[in-house]
């Protein structure tokens, strides 16, 4: 049941994690009544504050929760929900990746992908701006000066010092903890 529910979620959401919130919400709350709306808000909060793709986190958490309600093993429940959400894209991408080499021989495919390039850059820019807006202007709160200063400092640092992506993330976390010691929250 969990597997089928999340298989549907994995199959019908295109365009990343946040696109699946409405569908998961509808399936879990309205259709099956497994989760209350308040619990769902908690799910989203947790999924945002743990590592990994958002969709995976929310599926895993729902699986653990629903399995617990029905007296099943949380491991089994989360394997079903997480497996369900991953499987459609795994199969579809393997098929596409297999055919890609042949498809690239056609001029229309090459042209289409060439045209998608500036759009992809636009999407990446939009993702950065949207995240920045959520961080600097949280709903109902004043402008977050500390986070803005931190962002500028970190960006300047990466400009002068060669620092890898993984180190940058770890450094961000460490500095967040360090600033908290001085009473600055990001």
């Amino acid at each position: 049941m969990l597997f089928w529910t999340f298989l549907k979620v994995g199959l019908f959401t295109i365009g990343g994690g946040y696109a699946m919130i409405p569908l998961i919400q509808q399936q879990l709350i309205e259709r099956h009544g497994w989760v209350t709306p308040e619990q769902f808000t908690d799910f989203v909060g947790i999924a945002e504050s743990t590592p990994g793709p958002f969709a995976i986190n929310i599926a895993t958490f729902s699986g653990v929760h629903v399995a617990g309600q029905h007296g099943l093993s949380p491991l089994l429940g989360s394997l079903c929900s997480t497996g369900g959400v991953v499987l459609p894209s795994l199969v579809i991408i393997l098929l596409i990746a297999g055919a890609f080499h042949y498809a690239m021989r056609h001029w229309a495919v090459r042209a289409a992908l060439e045209g998608a390039k500036p759009v992809v850059v636009g999407l990446i820019g939009a993702a950065a701006v949207t995240l920045l807006r959520h961080t600097l202007l949280p709903a109902g709160e004043p402008f977050h000066w500390a986070a803005a200063g931190f962002a500028v400092a970190l960006f300047a640092l990466t400009h002068w010092v060669r620092i890898g992506a993984v180190s940058l993330i770890l450094l961000g976390g460490a500095l967040g903890l360090g600033l908290r010691c001085f009473g600055v929250s990001l």
Binding site: A127, A147, L154, I169, G173, G176, L177, R180
Partner: peptide, 27 residues
């Protein structure tokens, strides 16, 4: 408990800003 822990929130705040910088660089 995890969600309301101030230290978890502090580390996540820093990581979030680092992720934005990372995305801006990729952009």
């Amino acid at each position: 408990q995890f969600r309301e822990n101030a230290w978890v929130a502090a580390a996540l705040g820093g990581i979030r800003v680092a992720a934005i910088v990372l995305i801006a660089r990729a952009f």
